[in-house]
Design a protein around this nucleic acid. Structure first.
Length: 329
DNA sequence: AACCAAGGCAACCGCGATAGA
DNA sequence: TTCTATCGCGGTTGCCTTGGT
């Protein structure tokens, strides 16, 4: 493939290059040699000033191209591999909050790039919307995400966590090791404080067990169940209940799935104790659980559920737990 | 084995924001 | 204040892979 771009121009940004430079510029996939040149140069001189960096490194690429390659692929902390269930959950939740703010969303998933998340959204999430024959921004689709997809992800995360605990006792020890590096870690660090803690969570070697697979897709029956209910009754709560009763989740499990029952004021109350910033929605609970089950606190996340139940007025055997349990040692 | 369609993803493009001369 | 260079973001494109026929 001839990747030389004789037509390249980016004059709109004032990134002017002389004609000879433009003739020589390469486009398309990067070669190993180019990657090495970029890595070596940045290792010795640091990043920034991308146009001059490209020239000094002897790369026949635009500064933009170099920056993109570095940020999205070569950076040492880029996290490769499939999007995990926890990450999926976070993406769904954060997108519902922030929309297509890919960069902002990516900041909450250390090692993931905005490009990767954007691609995930466009290929996986929009596929579901297409299956539903509805717009990805429609209420119909958002309901499907909130009441089916996200609870399903939670269930799978929980199941995966259980398996890890049951299958190998080392899982707990590992989590504890992580926690040792994060004394007094606070689950309610929420979107602002998540990043540091998240990183250690993602280093859990067993997280591949929660990697996304094709089975993440909602089945046609799921859609039917949800929207058949929707057709019969426009009351959202009824839709939820019917979905729970007819879907894969058991009713009791459904009741204890945070995104289905959390009231805004409940979480606002909790969230206010830890940050005075954003309005917290029911879906925040989903994110918190995702964080919890990410690995740092697999052993204790059942207690979190208990606390959350208590917070929402669900009296259970775990109701003697209190919000203080949200701080881990 | 060959062809085709769909999916996944890396890379590119355009534009607005920002910094600094 | 204006102009230019650069950065960063979101949208889009197009190539490669995979799965189905």
């Amino acid at each position: 493939m001839d990747v030389t771009n004789s037509e390249f121009s980016d004059h709109s940004q004032g990134e002017l290059l002389d004609n000879q430079d433009q003739m020589d510029l390469r486009r398309g996939p990067w070669t190993v040699e180019e990657d090495l040149a970029l890595i070596n140069y940045i290792a010795n001189h640091g990043e920034g000033r991308w146009n001059s960096l490209a020239r000094c490194a002897g790369l026949r690429r635009t500064g933009k191209s170099c920056r993109l390659r570095w940020l999205n692929y070569l950076r040492p902390d880029v996290r490769r591999g499939n999007i995990t269930l926890e990450e999926q959950l976070l993406i769904l939740e954060l997108h519902s909050r922030w929309g297509n703010r890919w960069s902002k969303i990516a900041q909450q998933l250390p090692g993931r790039t905005d490009n990767e998340i954007k691609n995930y959204w466009r290929t996986r999430v929009q596929k579901h919307a297409k299956q539903l024959q509805c717009d990805v921004n429609s209420k119909q689709f958002k309901d499907a995400m909130k009441y089916l997809w996200m609870p399903r992800l939670l269930e799978r995360i929980r199941a995966s966590s259980m398996n890890q605990n049951n299958d190998h006792s080392g899982a707990t020890a590992h989590v504890n090791n992580n926690n040792n590096n994060n004394h007094n870690m606070n689950v309610y660090s929420s979107s602002i404080g998540v990043q540091n803690n998240y990183h250690s969570a993602f280093t859990t070697p067993d997280n591949s067990s929660t990697t996304a697979t094709s089975s993440d897709s909602l089945s046609a029956q799921d859609y039917y169940n949800t929207f058949h209910a929707h057709d019969n009754n426009n009351n959202n709560n009824d839709v939820v209940l019917q979905s729970a009763q007819t879907g894969h989740m058991g009713y009791q499990e459904f009741l204890t799935t945070p995104s289905t029952y959390f009231a805004d004021q409940d979480l606002m109350e909790i969230d206010n104790q830890h940050q005075k910033t954003t309005t917290t929605t029911a879906a925040t609970a989903t994110m918190l659980i995702a964080q919890v089950t990410c690995g740092w606190v697999v052993r204790t996340h059942q207690r979190i559920y208990g606390m959350l139940r208590t917070t929402c007025g669900f009296i259970s055997s775990s109701s003697n737990t209190s919000p203080t349990l949200m701080v881990f040692n």
